[in-house]
Simulated scan of single mutants.
Amino acid sequence: MDNPARSSLTGPHAHFAERSGRILRYRPDVTPWLALPDHPDAQDWVDVATLAGPGASVTLTAFREPPPADWEIVFHAEGVQMVDRAVDAAPDPEAVLLGPADVPEMLDLVERTRPGPFLPRTVELGTYLGIRRDGVLVAMAGERLHPAGWTEISAVCTDESVRGQGLASRLIRAVAHGIRERGETPFLHAAASNTGAIRLYESLGFTLRRRTAFLSAIVPADAVTRTRARTPDQGAGSLEQVGR
């Protein structure tokens, strides 16, 4: 849980993983998260560049060390990781299961509400539930990172036209119910500055587990060419499709 993207990609989400050396990432159309080892070295950053490509943006969470000095940081935010301690989880009679056919509507809702990264194949990461009004998708929530025994609730968003009706709370409880039914524990992340969301999550029964951070940086144009010696057991740094 201290490195949830890496725990997911070496566990239940291994079939979504791409690898270069010790670096793992989700396939780019699934979610942007890239996973470093706990203590990355110089070669690890070369492998990040190999996976992402020169000029690409890489997105990290739970990192312990910043990128090299010549990597341009374009986004950085402090965050919190919260876990279910007393959530009143329950199915919701109005919630509907969302799938690949609903992705255009989901992307449209995300564009209007900006809950965080959501890409064309993000829906494949787990269960997504939505609420429609007059046939229009106005709220949703679903599952993202999946360390063994845990599932992250993510993409919680509500259209401005229906805010204040408790739809987000209902969907969080419904998604949490499905996670608990599998014998797993729900958790979630929020920006530390998003005090309104944190208060909502606390009122639902989530408590702070740890503080974390989110960062996006641009790969320098020459990063891939900076080869460093690597011991044989660390891998050659070539791109590998881990899953199918």
Score class of each variant (00 low, 15 high):
Thr122Asp: 06
Val87Ala: 06
Phe118Thr: 00
Ser8Phe: 05
Val46Cys: 10
Arg27Met: 12
Pro37Tyr: 09
Gly183Ala: 10
Leu239Thr: 15
Ala217Gly: 08
Pro100His: 09
Val103Tyr: 06
Ala221Gln: 15
Trp150Leu: 12
Pro120Ala: 05
Gly243Pro: 08
Pro117Trp: 00
Ala197Met: 10
Leu9Ile: 12
Arg211Asn: 10
Leu215Thr: 01
Gly243Glu: 07
Cys157Arg: 02
Trp33Asn: 00
Ala155Ser: 15
Trp150Ser: 05
Asp2Met: 06
Leu9Pro: 12
Glu105Arg: 13
Glu202Pro: 01
Met1Phe: 10
Gly99Glu: 12
Gln241His: 13
Met140Phe: 02
Ala17His: 04
Asn3Gly: 01
Arg230Tyr: 09
Leu9Asn: 07
Asp102Lys: 05
Phe16Arg: 15
Leu171Asn: 03
Leu215Tyr: 07
Thr10Phe: 01
Phe63Thr: 11
Thr185His: 00
Arg209Ile: 01
Leu9Met: 04
Met1Arg: 10
Thr158Leu: 00
Val123Lys: 06
Ala86Asp: 15
Glu160Leu: 11
Glu202Leu: 04
Ile218Gly: 08
Glu65Phe: 11
Val30Trp: 01
Ile179Gly: 00
Arg114Lys: 07
Thr10Asp: 01
Pro117Glu: 01
Trp71Cys: 09
Leu24Gln: 05
Thr127Tyr: 03
Ala56Lys: 12
Arg19Leu: 05
Thr31Gln: 00
Gly130Pro: 01
Glu124Pro: 01
Val219Thr: 13
Tyr201Gln: 11
Arg199Tyr: 03
Pro232Asn: 11
Gly126Tyr: 05
His76Thr: 07
Leu36Cys: 01
Gly53Thr: 15
Gly243Arg: 10
Ile153Met: 11
His189Met: 01
Ala197Gly: 04
Thr50Asn: 14
Phe214Asp: 00
Glu65Tyr: 05
Ala17Cys: 11
Phe16Thr: 00
Gly205His: 13
Trp33Leu: 13
Asp92Trp: 10
Gly235Tyr: 11
Leu167Asn: 02
Ala155Leu: 08
Tyr26Ala: 09
Gly11Pro: 02
Arg230Asp: 09
Gly55His: 04
Ala236Pro: 11
Arg19Val: 06
Leu188Ile: 05
Ala5Gln: 14
Gly99Cys: 05
Glu18Pro: 08
Glu18Arg: 15
Asp233Asn: 12
Gly130Ser: 07
Ala221Met: 12
Val58Thr: 14
Val162Glu: 15
Met1Asn: 05
Ala221Lys: 14
Val224Gln: 15
Val46Thr: 15
Asp134Ala: 13
Met1Thr: 10
Ile153Asp: 00
Ala5Arg: 07
Ala148Pro: 02
Arg226Met: 02
Ala213Met: 04
Ala174Met: 08
Tyr201Pro: 12
Gly149Leu: 03
Ala90Leu: 06
Gly55Cys: 01
Phe63Glu: 09
Ala14Asn: 03
Thr127Ala: 02
Pro66Gln: 03
Val219Asn: 02
Thr10Arg: 13
Ser238Cys: 06
Gly164Ile: 06
Leu98Trp: 04
Glu184Met: 13
Ala56Ile: 14
Pro232Glu: 09
Leu60Glu: 08
Ala221Asn: 15
Met82His: 08
Ala236Cys: 12
Gly235Gln: 10
Ala155Phe: 01
Leu239Met: 13
Arg199Asp: 14
Asp29Val: 08
His13Lys: 14
Glu184Thr: 07
